[in-house]
């Protein structure tokens, strides 16, 4: 494997966003790119990252390899990069280590680190292609604020999507709260748009603790996409350049 990423910062942000959910992960490398799929210990949330080969320049992966990496170790090494550094990931066949080289674009500084790999026997989930009943795009910062605000009142949020808009509501010991968003187009600042694409009304309840955790990815993308269908896991997607993405799935809470 040899994969050069124009911005080391991208991988750093991904790792920062997921490392509280999952600890040891396989980075599956093949000629289409670098993918990661891991569930949290409680089997409630799943992280699915895809960094397509187009996100790298150049990208070369001659044989499929799984790089088992402890994310805390990876985070420590990625913190050694300067924010504008270029990152090259390298691994040999049947590797013991993954090699990370940070290059400064405007100086001759070159730093190099090896991280020891681990054997990770990971359960892999097959995620069916789903036509969701509701697809909502909104500013990622807005979603983060809603989740944080409602978590002050309750452990859970009900997300209801109708043709009127999307309503996030909660009930807790001190009282209740809700935030409703309607479709909204801002021509000057499209990152502020709220787009609701609905085929049938949806109402689902989710744990706010996990949603707040997902929102650590807000720095990766100005917009977040929420995809919902009744009685299936929620998909929270942060789109990255070149069709790469960071996705989170969260199992719903369903009435007893």
């Amino acid at each position: 494997l040899e994969a050069r990423l124009e911005q080391a910062n991208l991988l750093k942000k991904v790792v920062d966003a997921i490392k509280d959910l999952v600890q040891d992960c396989n980075f599956d490398c093949n000629d289409s790119g670098i993918a990661l799929q891991a569930m949290d210990n409680s089997h409630v949330a799943l992280v699915s990252m895809m960094l397509k080969s187009e996100s790298f320049s150049p990208f070369r992966c001659d044989r499929n390899i799984a790089l088992g990496i402890n994310l805390t170790s990876l985070q420590k090494v990625l913190r050694c990069a300067n924010s504008e550094d270029i990152l090259t990931l390298k691994a040999e066949d049947a590797p013991d280590v993954v090699n990370l080289v940070f290059e400064s674009a405007d100086s001759d500084r070159l730093s190099e680190y090896d991280i020891k790999l681990m054997d990770i026997d990971q359960e892999h989930l097959g995620i069916p292609e789903t036509e969701y009943a509701a697809n909502i795009s909104m500013p990622s910062a807005e979603f983060q604020k809603i989740c944080r605000d409602l978590m002050a009142l309750s452990e859970s949020v009900a997300i209801e999507c109708t043709k009127e808009g999307v309503k996030f509501s909660c009930n807790g010991d001190i009282g209740s709260g809700s935030v409703t968003l309607r479709s909204h187009t801002n021509v000057d600042k499209p990152e502020n748009n709220v787009e609701i694409d609905l085929t049938e009304p949806v109402a689902l309840t989710f744990s706010l603790k996990y949603l707040v955790n997902f929102c650590k990815a807000s720095g990766l993308s100005g917009q977040v996409k929420l995809c919902l269908s009744n009685e299936v896991p929620l998909l929270v997607e942060y789109g990255l350049a070149s069709n790469s993405y960071l996705r989170f799935y969260l199992a719903p809470k369903i009435g007893d």
């Binding site: 409630v44 719903p252 007893d256």
Partner: peptide, 14 residues
């Protein structure tokens, strides 16, 4: 109160 479901109830292990 609603109960937290497990993801493996929806997605199959492969």
């Amino acid at each position: 109160t609603p109960v937290q479901n497990d993801l493996t109830e929806f997605f199959v292990m492969v």
